[in-house]
């Protein structure tokens, strides 16, 4: 795990559900096949309604047409990020698009669990609501171990919550590695 993550912010609102993150029609792609897996990046966030795509402007595409990677690396969300379906394709799609961490007020539990156990991205929680304080495109620096976020565009510092119980799994890179390191798996 990198101790500092840098990148551009993509800002969304509350209750971003997994149907918005990766619409059901694309679940026919099999993530176990590399040629198909990259399409999850292409269609990531493609069901976020117009007006809410990259706040505050609301009309900024997460991934440009026919591209596999996003120009953004860090997603900022509000409450209940990742609610809805259990599809692991959701954190996988964000990771395929190049997202390394999400910072939200709090998460729906299956999205959080899938992010951690699958080792796709680091799901961080903010101590205050960031959706109105950070703008899409702001340059961010996330200090994982010191638990803060620096907005290099505005110069503001925002505190993050400790990762707690899941830190060892994130550090190991997912539940399989964690189980190997702790002797549960050979």
């Amino acid at each position: 795990m990198e101790s500092v993550i840098s990148g551009k912010a993509y800002v969304l609102g509350d209750n971003i559900d997994t149907d918005q993150i990766i619409p059901a029609q694309y679940l026919a792609f099999n993530p176990a096949i590399a040629e198909e897996r990259k399409y999850f990046g292409m269609y990531a966030m493609s069901s976020v309604p117009e007006g809410q795509r990259g706040l505050p402007a609301g009309n900024i595409p997460f991934v440009e047409l026919n591209q596999f990677k996003s120009q953004f690396q860090i997603v900022i969300g509000g409450k209940n990020f990742g609610c809805g379906s259990s599809r692991e394709h959701a954190p996988l799609a964000l990771a395929e698009a190049g997202i390394t961490c999400v910072i939200a007020e709090f998460y729906a539990r299956i999205f959080f669990r899938n992010s951690v156990n699958g080792g796709y991205l680091v799901p961080l929680e903010s101590t205050t609501r960031l959706v109105e304080q950070i703008r899409t495109g702001d340059e961010l620096e996330v200090h994982l171990l010191d638990q803060y976020l620096l907005n290099k565009t505005t110069g503001k510092r925002h505190e993050l919550r400790p990762l707690g119980d899941v830190l060892p799994i994130i550090e190991a890179g997912g539940v399989f590695n964690y189980a190997k390191e702790t002797g549960m798996l050979k």
């Binding site: 259990s86 299956i110 669990r113 156990n117 699958g118 080792g119």
Partner: peptide
């Protein structure tokens, strides 16, 4: 659960 938990 997700695919990883299910595979585990």
């Amino acid at each position: 659960v997700g695919n990883t938990d299910a595979a585990f």
